[in-house]
């Protein structure tokens, strides 16, 4: 009976497992959820009351698209997608800061139910926190570039299924 021994060696989720992408996966999941929420909400807004606040609802739709692209870029996160992730996440941070500030200074400009109004308070401030976490993740998971001095072309390492 050699079964139990080999089974014990093959325990899948040992504490030493080197899965640096783990928390990053969580980030992607939250991004996906936010993308879904923003898409659903802007769909409702545009389908039912677009003429009430065209600016805010167009922005809502734009933010939904950006969240979707950011989610995809984080999933890919290599080469060109890495740059796309930076652009979309920066756009989100800018959006939530600008719209959040404007919605407090001049509430008439944005009705209170857009994704970025009052710094995303309708979404537990996730739209404000998420871009910052996303940027931290991107900084730490830069794809390997040939400019590093002692790093010989480790670029193909993480291309699992693209």
């Amino acid at each position: 009976m050699t079964g139990p021994q080999s089974a014990a060696e093959n325990v899948v989720d040992g504490p030493q497992k080197r899965r640096v992408t783990g928390v990053g996966r969580l980030l992607i999941a939250v991004y996906g959820l936010l993308a879904l929420a923003a898409t659903g909400r802007s769909f409702v807004q545009i389908a039912s009351k677009f003429d009430q606040a065209p600016l805010a609802y167009s922005l809502s739709a734009l933010s939904a698209v950006v969240y979707i692209v950011a989610t995809i870029a984080l999933v890919r996160s290599s080469g060109r997608w890495y740059r796309v992730a930076w652009v979309t996440i920066s756009f989100e941070l800018l959006g939530v800061l600008v719209v959040g500030t404007l919605s407090i200074v001049d509430p008439a400009l944005f009705p209170h139910d857009s994704v970025w109004s009052v710094f995303g308070s309708g979404y537990l401030f996730i739209p404000l926190v998420l871009p910052i976490l996303g940027m931290m993740w991107l900084v730490r998971h830069r794809p390997a570039r040939p400019q590093g001095p002692a790093r010989p072309q480790g670029q193909a390492g993480r291309q699992a299924s693209s």
């Binding site: 928390v23 969580l26 959820l33």
Partner: peptide, 24 residues
């Protein structure tokens, strides 16, 4: 949402997939 989370859990069998199920 639950379908997407479950599909994820089937593809990637890590502890974070369980956390994602919970979040969903």
């Amino acid at each position: 949402v639950p379908v997407a989370a479950a599909a994820w859990a089937l593809i990637e069998r890590s502890r974070w997939s369980t956390v994602i199920l919970g979040g969903a």
